[in-house]
Nucleic acid binder design. Structure first.
Lengths: 66, 66
DNA sequence: CATTTCTGTAAAGCAACCTTTACATATATC
DNA sequence: GATATATGTAAAGGTTGCTTTACAGAAATG
């Protein structure tokens, strides 16, 4: 599952640590999700999308079926 | 995390077993998600939304922050 | 060059998701 | 009443998500 977290985060000038704090998760979780090591849970995906102010589909992309 | 799977499924006349087959998961998983015992993974949430032809936010609702 | 900030990754452990097998109940149709 | 379909739930086990602690390299700043 691809995502645009790095891009959205960069546009706002937030470090991984800052985003992690806003999301109430560890910095390692942000890094792991951003680098594609694993996908976030659905509740966390909602928080991520809401913090960036966009729909979930604007952050995550399963190509066509992952 | 609340969801409208039961409603969307009912509108289409699909049983839990039929939906499970379309999603490629077990019937028990569909039941557990539908009855709120746990949330689907993000990839599964994408498949669910796509099968119903609606955005993820139209199926799932975390109230305001779960 | 020294220090700080940011990022990437690893290991160990707990919690959540999802599976298979199995049983119980309800409703419908014969 | 018997059979079939639909739903709800449980237990055990594997996989994935997320944590804490820890180390290392890259990039900025003094």
């Amino acid at each position: 599952m691809k995502n645009k977290i790095k891009q959205l985060r960069g546009e706002r000038g937030w470090s991984q640590a800052v985003l992690a704090e806003k999301l109430d998760v560890s910095r390692q979780s942000v890094n792991a999700i951003e680098t594609g090591r694993y996908d976030p849970s659905l509740p966390l995906a909602f928080r991520i999308a809401r913090i960036f102010g966009v729909p979930i589909e604007a952050v995550f992309d399963d190509g066509d079926g992952a």
